[in-house]
């Protein structure tokens, strides 16, 4: 598994486990913000979202915007 494949896998896994949260995308975004190092975040922000589940993709989009905006 390459690093980006692993990150996509991890994001999807987090999304699957937070699927029952009230705001799944928000919860996934928060989890990634709290536990991923800057390089991992950058790699997934730069990724074209191929392979990401809808919740994971939404979460990463949300987080990227927040980090770029803030």
């Amino acid at each position: 598994m390459t690093t980006i494949e692993r990150l996509v896998y991890m994001a999807n896994q987090i999304a699957a486990n937070l699927a029952t949260d009230e705001d799944p995308a928000g919860a996934v975004a928060e989890h990634i913000a709290l536990f991923w190092d800057p390089r991992m975040k950058k790699l997934i922000f730069d990724h074209d979202s191929g392979g990401l589940s809808p919740v994971a993709a939404a979460a990463i989009h949300q987080l990227a915007q927040k980090q770029n905006g803030g």
Binding site: T3, R6, L34, F35, W36, D37, P38, R39, M40
Partner: peptide
């Protein structure tokens, strides 16, 4: 202020050369 790498992520980053 940013979290660092966990062991498996360190190894990935090592394989990536960073």
């Amino acid at each position: 202020p940013e979290p660092g790498l966990r062991i498996p992520n360190m190894l990935d980053a090592a394989v990536d050369g960073v």
